[in-house]
Amino acid sequence: NKFNKELQWATWEIFNLPNLNEEQVKAFIDSLRDDPSQSANLLAEAKKLNDAQA
């Protein structure tokens, strides 16, 4: 299933962003679980936040 692979990839990527704190990671993962179809958008937002906090 396409969404499942995207969800797994986005989850792994978010867990490995070095500049997000635990609460931010949890919030993004919760959002992914709530709406897996938004995984690409949520990953992009997480990466933006990660870069901003570098």
Rank of each mutant, 00 (worst) to 15 (best):
L49R: 03
Q38G: 07
A54Q: 12
S31G: 11
P36A: 04
S39P: 04
A27Q: 14
N41T: 13
E13D: 06
A27Y: 15
A10P: 02
E45D: 03
N1L: 04
Q8F: 09
A27F: 13
A40G: 11
A10Y: 14
I29D: 01
S39E: 03
I29W: 05
N50I: 01
K2A: 15
E23K: 08
D51I: 11
L20H: 00
N50V: 01
E22L: 10
E13S: 04
L49Y: 05
E45T: 10
S39H: 14
S31I: 14
A44V: 09
Q38S: 08
P36F: 06
K26S: 11
N4A: 04
A27V: 13
E22H: 07
E6L: 08
L20I: 04
E22G: 11
K2N: 15
K47L: 09
N1R: 00
N19S: 07
N16H: 12
L42F: 10
N4S: 04
W12T: 15
Q24Y: 01
L42G: 01
N41M: 15
S37W: 06
F15R: 15
E6S: 02
L17Q: 04
A52G: 12
R33V: 14
A10V: 10
A44M: 12
W12E: 15
L17I: 01
F28W: 03
K26P: 00
S37G: 10
W12S: 12
W9I: 08
N19F: 11
N19I: 01
K48W: 10
S39D: 01
K26T: 09
K26N: 11
Q8S: 06
L43P: 00
P18E: 11
V25M: 07
L7E: 11
N19P: 00
Q38F: 03
A54M: 13
L49D: 02
P36H: 04
K48Y: 10
Q24M: 03
D34Y: 12
A54V: 10
S37D: 07
L43K: 03
A27S: 14
D30T: 12
P18I: 04
V25N: 01
F28S: 00
A46T: 00
I14L: 06
D51Q: 12
K26F: 08
I29K: 01
A27K: 12
N50R: 00
S37M: 08
Q38P: 01
K26I: 12
W12F: 10
K48F: 07
W9V: 08
S39T: 14
Q24F: 02
A54R: 02
F28E: 00
D30Y: 07
L20N: 00
Q8M: 13
S37F: 06
K5T: 15
A52P: 03
S39Y: 15
L49A: 04
E23T: 13
A27T: 14
E45G: 04
P18F: 06
N16M: 08
T11Q: 09
K26R: 13
K47P: 00
I29G: 03
I14T: 02
E13F: 09
D34I: 12
D34K: 09
K2E: 15
W9E: 15
D34G: 10
F3V: 09
N4I: 07
L43S: 02
Q24I: 02
D35W: 07
L7D: 06
K5G: 10
E23G: 05
S31V: 08
S37Y: 05
K47I: 09
D34S: 07
K47D: 01
P36T: 04
L7S: 05
N16I: 06
N21Q: 09
N21H: 06
A10R: 01
W12N: 08
N4W: 14
L7K: 02
K2S: 15
E45F: 07
S31H: 13
K2H: 15
D51V: 07
L43D: 00
E13G: 03
D35Q: 09
L17M: 15
F28T: 01
L32M: 14
K47G: 02
R33A: 09
K48D: 08
Q38Y: 06
A27E: 11
Q8P: 03
Q53W: 07
E23L: 11
D51G: 06
Q38I: 05
A54N: 13
E45Y: 08
Q53S: 06
S39A: 10
I14R: 01
A46V: 03
A10T: 09
N16A: 10
P18R: 06
E6W: 11
A46H: 01
N21W: 09
D30R: 09
N21I: 12
F28P: 00
L32G: 01
L49H: 03
S39R: 05
P18L: 08
Q8A: 13
D51A: 14
K47E: 06
N19H: 13
A46Y: 07
D35I: 04
T11W: 08
T11H: 06
L20W: 01
F15W: 14
L20Q: 00
W12V: 09
N41W: 13
I29Q: 04
N19L: 05
K26Q: 09
I29V: 11
N50T: 00
S39M: 12
F3P: 15
Q38V: 08
L7P: 04
K5Y: 13
V25E: 02
I29A: 04
A44W: 07
E6T: 03
L7R: 01
K47T: 04
E22Q: 13
F3T: 05
P36S: 04
L17E: 00
K5E: 15
N4T: 05
K26E: 08
A27N: 11
F28N: 00
A40P: 08
E22N: 11
P18N: 07
N41L: 11
K47R: 11
L20T: 00
S31E: 06
A10K: 03
E22Y: 09
S39W: 15
K2M: 15
N41F: 08
K2T: 15
L42P: 00
P36D: 02
F15G: 15
A54L: 09
L17F: 08
P36Y: 04
E45V: 08
A27I: 10
Q8Y: 13
L20F: 01
L42D: 01
L7Q: 11
K2F: 12
R33M: 15
D34W: 09
F15I: 15
S39F: 11
S37L: 08
W12H: 12
T11S: 09
A10G: 04
Q38H: 06
K48H: 11
N50Y: 01
P18D: 06
N1W: 00
N16E: 07
T11K: 11
A44Y: 09
A54W: 10
N21P: 02
Q38K: 13
N50G: 01
L42M: 07
S37A: 06
D35H: 13
Q53G: 07
F15N: 15
P36G: 03
L49K: 05
L49M: 10
I14N: 02
L17H: 03
N19R: 01
W12D: 15
N4F: 09
F3L: 08
L42Q: 03
T11E: 14
A27P: 01
K48S: 09
E22R: 11
F3I: 10
D30P: 00
N1F: 00
Q8L: 13
L49I: 10
D35K: 12
A40S: 13
E13Q: 14
Q53E: 05
L17D: 00
S31R: 06
W12Y: 12
D35P: 01
P18S: 11
K48A: 11
F3D: 15
E23Y: 13
Q24N: 02
L49S: 03
F3E: 13
D35N: 13
W9T: 10
T11F: 14
